[in-house]
Structures are given as C-alpha cells and as structure tokens.
C-alpha cells in the first residue's frame, strides 16, 4: 500500500527506541517468555463424572437445553431432539455421520451452501472439538464435522453433539488439547474407536494450532439495554447440547483427565 512501507519502518523504529530492554535474539526472547509466572490453576481437580456434571450444569445456567445419552442411543436422541424442536428443515456439515441425519426431516448438507440457503434452515446439527466445564464453553475448530463458521451462526437453533471424553474442566486444559501436546485422553481410556466410528472425528491435526476457533458459551445474548440479559440477538437463540457418555464414567480418576501442558 502506498506509504505503508515508510510508516512500517517509522513505527518499528519508534518501538525499537522505546524498548531498549527488548530481547536481543530469538533465544533470549524465548527465555523471557519461558520465565513468565503461571501459578494459576491449569489441571482440573474433578473426576470425569463430576467434570461432565459441571459442564451440564454450566450449560443449563446459560439456558442451553442439555440431554445426556449413551453412545448407542445417540441417533435416537438426536431424532427426539429434532422432533421436539417442532422444526423440519436442518443443515449439517459434510463430516457428520450419516446416522445423525434422522429420517423424516429435510436435510441439506453443507457442500458449499449459500448464506441464503443456510439462513433458510430452521436448525443445524454439528459435532464439537471440546467442552470446557468451568465456563460451560463449547469450542469449535470448524473441522468437517463441526462445520464452517457461518453454519452454526445463521440458523436459529443449534444442536451440538459433545462427547464426554471431549470435556475438560479448565480452559488451560483445552489449550493443552488444542496445541496437541497431549492426547485427548481418549486413547488412554481406550474409547477412541467408539468415538470416531459413531460420533464424528474432529479432524484436528495434533501439533498444529487451529486456524479458526469459535468459543461458544451459551446462546447469543446482550445486556445493552438496562443490563437486562436478552437471549439471541444475532446468533442462534436456542442452543441444545447432547452429551454422549462415550467413556465408562465413574472408573476414571483425575489421573486420566487431561493434564495441562508445560
């Protein structure tokens, strides 16, 4: 852009003059960064059951509808949720398993749907990358089963399928998983096969940071008028979550919970 280069040099030069203490090399910078204090809670303290319970509790506090089911009950549970919604036309990302697309509803799979087509749908069904119990947050990395960003935005009703093994207690535990510095916990629990076969794979490559992330904590909301919380301004007004008990709960101690990374 015109004049951009000179302003760039000018700003960087001003910054350089303003920061005589800046690290002289990449190694020194890494050392500065490595010395940062991180005394906050990183690894959760709850066992797997309590962690999922907290996740459900937090989601309900946000007015999200939550149901729990066993892995084999999932297709039936999805169908029941869709029926109870009173809606007919749904969109879904291309990566979701075929058995999620319950019969008796109008499905459009997002192989490049236009915004108007997505807008016309009454609801959307997707998988998720992770759930953070502490804040009741659902994290999407927008893989093939989680859908493009716009897919979970325009329809007024979002049904999100979350596996219990995807639920971590703390936000730092999510960041550990996202960085791929540790297993998702599934391998240790031996439930990976179960997870991928019927529940959709998040498609995340380990060791690489996500390019797109959306953290969702409850339905869209505003408190701009007299601090009164109103649900659903522009995003979906209704968030439904099915928590799939894909690991045998009650048998895992905190040791198999995601530990935070260093």
């Amino acid at each position: 852009m015109n004049g951009g280069a000179s302003s760039r040099e000018q700003i960087l030069e001003r910054i350089q003059r303003a920061t005589p203490g800046a690290a002289a090399s990449a190694a020194a910078l890494a050392e500065d960064y490595g010395a940062l204090p991180r005394a906050y809670v990183r690894a959760g303290r709850l066992d797997a059951d309590a962690c999922v319970e907290l996740m459900v509790h937090r989601l309900r506090e946000y007015d999200a509808e939550v149901v729990e089911c066993a892995a084999e009950e999932l297709p039936g549970t999805i169908a029941a949720q869709l029926a109870a919604s009173g809606r007919r036309s749904f969109v879904a990302p291309p990566g979701v398993p075929a058995e999620w697309l319950a019969a008796g509803f109008d499905w459009r799979i997002d192989h490049g749907l236009t915004a108007a087509e997505i807008e016309a749908a009454e609801g959307v069904v997707t998988a998720a990358f992770c759930g953070v119990a502490d804040s009741g947050t659902i994290v999407l990395h927008h893989s093939a089963s989680e859908g493009r960003r716009v897919l979970t935005l325009l329809p007024d009703w979002h049904l999100c399928i979350l596996r219990a093994s995807q639920v971590v207690e703390t936000l730092p535990e999510y960041f550990g998983r996202a960085a791929g510095n540790q297993g998702s916990g599934d391998e240790k629990a031996g439930t990976r096969d179960l997870g991928t076969e019927g529940l959709g794979n998040c498609g995340h490559e380990t060791g690489r940071l996500p390019r797109l992330v959306t953290w969702i904590s409850g339905p869209s909301a505003t408190a701009d008028i007299e601090m009164t919380r109103i649900k659903g301004v522009h995003g979906p007004r209704f968030l439904h979550v099915i928590v799939v008990k894909d690991r045998k709960l009650g048998t895992q101690g905190p040791a198999t919970q995601g530990l935070s990374v260093q």
Binding site: V132, T214, W215, G218, S220, G235
Partner: peptide, 8 residues
Amino acid sequence: RMNPYTSL
C-alpha cells in the same frame, strides 16, 4: 465466566 462468543 465467558462471553457468549469468542472468534479466532
């Protein structure tokens, strides 16, 4: 605890 939407 968290705002409804954070985008990266």
